[in-house]
């Protein structure tokens, strides 16, 4: 690919067209109101996550002594907009810092799952035969484990941390991604440009990575969007079960877990993180729907 990159560099119009293309996609997005809503929700959370260190927020882990009592402090529109939790920590601050955490780890975990899944899928689809049998067999084994049990096994082995979440999500998602990519590659590999690459003696890895994968990106972008939503759910589930990101750092799943026992007399400690979680997942799902709608219309 080095030669083609060089080739592109000589062309001044290139950069501009990339930017233009991004705006074109945005303009297309406007045609799908559903997708636009999803995009706005996600952008809201992304902006919050990025601005978290600069916003005038309380330390999310600081215990505000006067309010440290069972029953927490309900939102009153005053000092704490969204109130405090049972330990007297600012809920607004915890939700915003939690957004940063969930977005970073969800993106990273999905990315790792994609790298692994795509490699498995392109290998199985392009090579076929034994390679396909082996990769598909491994994938089926992991798919046959219930997600939670898989996570418990991994946490038991590795201990609870963000990395555990990445490993767990990868084990759960990569086989599914592998199946999608394998199907796409089975279709793509019969194209003439693949024969052309074969007849000029390209190596299998060159064909898989340069000739095949870039052409599978369309359906994968939609899937990645949906999968980000699933990963957010997964991270929250793990947090709720106490298997995810370790306390005391804010994590939406963990916040929910801690709030459940208090649900009856301090509902806001439960509803607020739940609403944040639901809105982000909804955002990813709506965006995926919008993208699919647009890609089908062309």
């Amino acid at each position: 690919m080095t030669d083609s990159v060089k080739f592109d560099n000589e062309l001044p119009a290139k950069r501009e067209s990339r930017v233009k293309r991004f705006f074109k996609v945005l303009a297309l997005m406007r045609e799908s109101p559903v997708g636009m809503i999803g995009l706005l929700i996600i952008l809201f959370w992304v902006v919050m996550a990025i601005l978290a260190p600069f916003l005038p927020l309380y330390d999310p882990n600081a215990i505000m002594a006067p309010f440290q009592k069972i029953g927490a402090h309900a939102p009153d529109g005053g000092t704490f907009w969204l109130g405090t939790d049972h330990k007297g920590r600012d809920i607004l601050s915890r939700i915003i810092w939690g957004a940063q955490k969930v977005l970073v780890w969800a993106t990273f975990a999905t990315f790792v799952a994609y790298v692994v899944g795509m490699m498995m899928g392109v290998l199985a689809g392009y090579k076929g035969g034994w390679a396909d049998e082996i990769v598909s067999f491994i994938a089926n084994i992991f798919l046959s484990f219930p997600f939670i049990i898989l996570c418990i096994i991994i946490v038991a082995t590795l201990g609870a941390s963000g990395w555990t979440v990445v490993v767990a999500v990868t084990f759960a998602s990569a086989p599914q991604i592998m199946r999608i990519v394998r199907g796409l590659v089975l279709d793509l590999k019969t194209r003439d440009y693949i024969f052309a690459a074969q007849t000029r003696g390209e190596t299998p890895w060159y064909i898989m990575l340069v000739e095949l994968l870039p052409n599978a990106r369309g359906p994968l972008i939609v899937d990645a969007c949906l999968r980000l939503g699933y990963t957010v759910v997964a991270i929250a589930t793990l947090g709720f079960l106490g298997l995810g990101l370790p306390p005391p750092d804010p994590d939406w799943g963990l916040m929910l877990k801690e709030a459940v026992p208090l649900g009856a007399f301090a509902g806001h400690t439960m509803y607020l993180p739940a609403a944040a979680l639901a809105s982000l997942i909804l955002g990813f799902n709506l965006l995926a729907d919008g993208l699919r709608e647009i890609s089908l219309r062309d």
């Binding site: 030669d3 083609s4 080739f7 592109d8 194209r191 003439d192 440009y193 024969f195 052309a196 007849t199 000029r200 003696g201 340069v210 000739e211 870039p214 052409n215 990106r217």
Partner: peptide, 27 residues
Amino acid sequence: VSLLQMVFQNPFDTLNPSHTVGSQIAR
């Protein structure tokens, strides 16, 4: 390999849609 090359049937399939025409010839 370079002595023996092929022109394919389907024009919509013969070029890789992900790469520029120039980079495909350059390759």
